[in-house]
Design a protein around this nucleic acid. Sequence first.
RNA 1: GCUGCGUUCUUCUAACGGUUAGGAAUCAAGAUUCUCAAUCUUGCAAUACGAGUUCGAUUCUCGUACGCAGUACCA
Length: 504
Amino acid sequence: MNPRVRFAPSPTGPLHIGGVRTALYNYLFAKKNNGTLLLRIEDTDQTRFVEGAEEYIIEAFQWLGIPFDEGVGIGGEYGPYKQSERKALYKPYAEQLVRDGWAYYAFDTPEQLDAKRKEAESQKKTFQYDANTRMGMVNSLTLPAEEVERRLTSGEHYVVRFKYPADLDIHVQDLIRGEVVINSNLLDDKVLYKSDGMPTYHLANIVDDHLMKITHVIRGEEWLPSAPLHVMLYKAFGWEAPQFAHLPLLLKPDGNGKLSKRDGDRLGFPVFPLQWHDPKSGETSSGYRESGYLPEAVINMLALLGWNPGNDQELMSLDELINLFSIDKISKAGAKFSLDKAKWFNHEYILMKPAAELRPHFRKILDEKGVTCSDEYLDAVTDLVKDRLNFLPDFWEQASYFFVAPTEYDPQALKKRWKEGTGEKLRVIDEMLCGIQPFDKDKAHDMVMQYIQDNELNMGQVLNSLRIALVGTARGPELFTMIDVIGIEEVHKRVMKAIEVVNL
RNA sequence: GCUGCGUUCUUCUAACGGUUAGGAAUCAAGAUUCUCAAUCUUGCAAUACGAGUUCGAUUCUCGUACGCAGUACCA
């Protein structure tokens, strides 16, 4: 049977990069095994709804190039794929559990529960709604049947809680961690169905996964503690449970702990795929896209944070990742995000891209700077500078002199490379270069070299002073190639200007 | 606190129970006969600790330490 997996975010804000990795692993697993990946929106908590979050999620995956086969925004035969639109469907399942003795109605108010917790806390204990305490609470186990019926029909608020059998060892088989065993006495009677008529994550995810014929649940490690509940729910419904795989967490680069939005702001890297503008707080969080990462690089980097192909290969296209992916190569321990490694990946991917594919990104930068040029010129410049870019926006810093003449000259470079008489020499060289008709960079190179030799000049001095005149500092690609690209007329202008401005 | 999960260079990680514990990023040095990058070469650097099993443990078991996660009518 072909596997069916899902990515099921809750639309409470921008998609965290850890969530992106979870989705990526689901995607790789699905594609590797000829399976189906679906997108389900888990919006059972109406109080946490955030405007625009769902659209953000969809756009993020479009940018990343991870297509879903089924789900919100796509459709499919197991819809609707948004849990709020499935609301009516969950109640009968909750009732079925109560009928079968796997759950019960509970009428305790939030205030009562709070009081219980406070009371326990004052005795340095924690209150847990479980096999030990439930008989002392207000629920359908302790109330007479008629009273329960009365409360239910009179519209009184209630929740449905799962009723764990006492002292039962629950076994969870995890594809990454092996067997995990936990005793039911340690678990609390989780709420399955809320008083607002919505299921909790626990109920909804089991019902939906079953109805949507999910075969493998691949999700973050933070879900491991509730996996026993989920296993029990499948048992209670008499359904076959999917296989579980709990992914290691993505950790912050310094110290320990889960990677959070704050770390990104603090350490200067994005934790979200796309820039996000929070409608409530008004604050903006940076995104990988806006920071100049290539989606392929982000995917490659993310794939390797917690997984490896079993060999030394690090640069892999999405197709290669799919081909190589397997769950048993996923590591157990959390992985720290590394900005240096991310930078390296992005650099490698920029290197791999032909100039024409980079063109739209750089064209945008030029537009912002008010610069126009032909595609041919842009591509020529791109080929000359792309090996010195880590991120797309580095382009201007590394290539601006191809578009605008320098307005100032680096004093340090000047001090080292511009001596008395340099101006005269440049004038001679400039004349020489202008005399080459039509211009030919090899010829130019030979002529200048010959000039240097004949006059017993220092090559480093001459060439670098010319470079400073063109770039403004001692940087940049091979000098004569640069002259060729910039064009002899513009070169002439810049040399004249430098001689005038520097004036030694 | 309790429960669970985890622990190989600074970081990401590899290693049927048998290797000089490998690769990559970072960093350093050198090479590229104009600069700065890029690139290439070389180098630095690790099995948390303690027991046990075994002819032999990075690998299996137990304990300790440390870290993380969970412990809501949130997902």
